[in-house]
Amino acid sequence: MALLQTLILRVITTAVTLLGVAVIVFFVIRVVPGNPIAMMLPPGATAEDIANLTAIYGLDKSIPQQFFIWGTGVLGGDFGTSITLKQPVLELVLGRLPATLELSVLALVMAIVIGGAAALTGTRLRETRVEGGIDVAQGMALSVPDFLWGLVLILVFGVLVPVFQISGRVTPSLQLPFVSDFYLVESLLRLRFDLSLDLLSHMLLPALALAIPLAAIIGQLLKQSLKETMHLDYVTLARTQGYSEAKVIWSQALPNAILPTLTLVGVQFTFLIGGTVIIERLFSYEGLGNMAIDAVINRDLPLIQGIVILFAVIFTGVNLLVDLTYAALNPRLRHG
């Protein structure tokens, strides 16, 4: 009952937040000096041509009027038409979203694996040099943002030891049999592991750049909660029952220590997705973020709006999901 109430309240605040985002982008980008229509027409275009096209895109109306038209469209699933690419915004955005999702999820998985391994190792070898080393490495990983890690990775694994691709999503000359835009998922489903390998060799460095700071955050917090848990009586009891230290950490301490980390991972995952914007640019990866930057540079108003809204939906959605998972996983919350 309490759970349902929280849920409804969260959905309402999420809706308010999304509305706020929509209003802000909409008005901010319309303060842009210069007519985007004039920019896209060839230099010889007459004032009449410009006025005509402006009317077609509805840019001649007042801003509140435009917002109303756009808003009703969005509620009906119509995000307008891209000015530069001349295709429906929804189609364009949904075409790029899978690339960004695959990259983000891969990065998240890497962060969890690396951070989790660091935390478990640090706990197992606590109060040794190894733990000290892990702490220092994590401190550094945390201090430097994904953008810089991306550049470092490009230098090290792209130039110094060129083992991975540093540009694009897939080798352009390859024949792609895909029907969806989830290339990696589809290549795995079709058992075309040659393609999966090519995709992964393109995704690995950008994903790692995104994963490094998050891995450090996960590692730090998880190790801290693990170490706190290791002093608790039920852990001691498990030791007397013959469980090895590693097993005690894994099956007694970890399930209880993981909850605070999980909440944090949710918020941090949205930061990671936000980071894809610049990382995709850096690695020329054809995802949503890269498209967003192009849209801003080209003043493609409908496209910018669509992308920002989509990002906001993802962010708030992830947060909502984390809250619900947290409630579902915590037996004490679940039973009142």
């Binding site: 009586d233 039920y234 001691t236 029952q241 399930p255 004490r332």
Partner: peptide, 19 residues
Amino acid sequence: VGATCALIPQDPLTALNPS
């Protein structure tokens, strides 16, 4: 020790794994 001994702990509130 695990096979031949056992512990009855002092505080039953903290000696069971909550999850």
